[in-house]
């Protein structure tokens, strides 16, 4: 029995362009999500220009600038991490990913102190202190806390996502393929389990397949070795990177619109 007529061929459902298409659609929904809030911002800023100007002076531009630098750095290291995987350099990729996660956490910590100070001064939505402010300033802070808050949640999600990616890259991604009895497996009956290379040479031969076999599991490991590294193997990392960049870009818009309009 030759290897071709009676063997199982895995239909590898890995459409990387499809996944990328999906993630871009998702990023678009993020843009629209924040777009709704930017719409509110633009209406209220044109309605209360001077109140927005005064309220923006209350924000700590230094901390805002540091946070912007932190996020920009994280985007750089994210891109470097992906570039490192393209070159099969897993160690560098992991280091860069770790720096990215660290930057994200730093951003959140700075935000925590920044907001803590604001709360300390009685500036938070619904506070009695804020209620005495002019209407435009109430709206400014309402929008600021909401938009920066929703952005902060996205950063938090990013931290979780990138940590998962770190574990996946560190743990050498492996795939489990299952051949389940029923559809197709019966056609392999009478054959043998075997590993065959591209030239048809049998590298390893195992047990015969008969009707008692209900399922065959194959566990494979993709090692990011330079010589046989496929870019597609780190598609998930690239998609996570795209998400991280959109989080960064949103901040690029938030920062000047809230901190620099004085």
């Amino acid at each position: 029995m030759s290897a071709t007529t009676n063997s199982l061929v895995l239909a590898h459902h890995k459409d990387y362009r499809g996944s990328k298409f999906g993630i871009w659609l998702f990023l678009m929904t993020e843009v629209v999500l924040f777009g709704g809030m930017f719409l509110l911002y633009s209406v209220y800023r044109s309605k209360y220009p001077s109140d927005f100007h005064h309220a923006a002076e209350e924000l700590n531009t230094l901390l805002g600038t540091i946070n912007t630098l932190v996020l920009l750095t994280s985007s750089l290291t994210m891109a470097l991490s992906i570039a490192a995987t393209h070159h099969g350099n897993r160690k560098l990729a992991l280091w860069m990913l770790a720096v990215t996660i660290l930057c994200a956490c730093t951003f959140l910590v700075i935000k925590y102190f920044e907001w803590g100070a604001k709360f300390h001064h009685g500036i938070y939505p619904g506070s009695a202190h804020l209620a005495a402010f002019p209407k435009g300033e109430i709206l400014f802070f309402g929008l600021y806390f909401t938009m920066a808050g929703v952005h902060g949640i996205h950063v938090l999600v990013g931290v979780v996502l990138l940590t998962v990616m770190f574990i996946r890259v560190a743990g050498q991604p492996n795939a489990k393929l299952s051949f389940v009895a029923g559809h197709g497996l019966q056609h392999a009956e009478g054959g043998n389990l075997a590993v065959v290379d591209a030239q048809g040479k049998v590298l390893w031969k195992g047990d015969p397949i008969d009707s008692t076999i209900q399922r065959i599991d194959v566990r494979t490991r993709f090692w990011p070795v330079k010589s046989r590294f496929k870019v597609e193997d780190f598609n998930q990392l690239e998609n996570s990177g795209l998400y991280w960049h959109i989080v960064d870009i949103i901040w690029i818009f938030l920062f000047p619109l809230f901190y620099l309009i004085t």
Binding site: V43, Y44, G126, P134, L139, L143, F145
Partner: peptide, 17 residues
């Protein structure tokens, strides 16, 4: 939950938005 005011006319917000 927090009373940010964006749709609340008392705080300058606009329900039409």
């Amino acid at each position: 939950s927090f009373g940010i005011g964006v749709f609340d006319p008392v705080k300058g917000g606009d329900p039409i938005l």
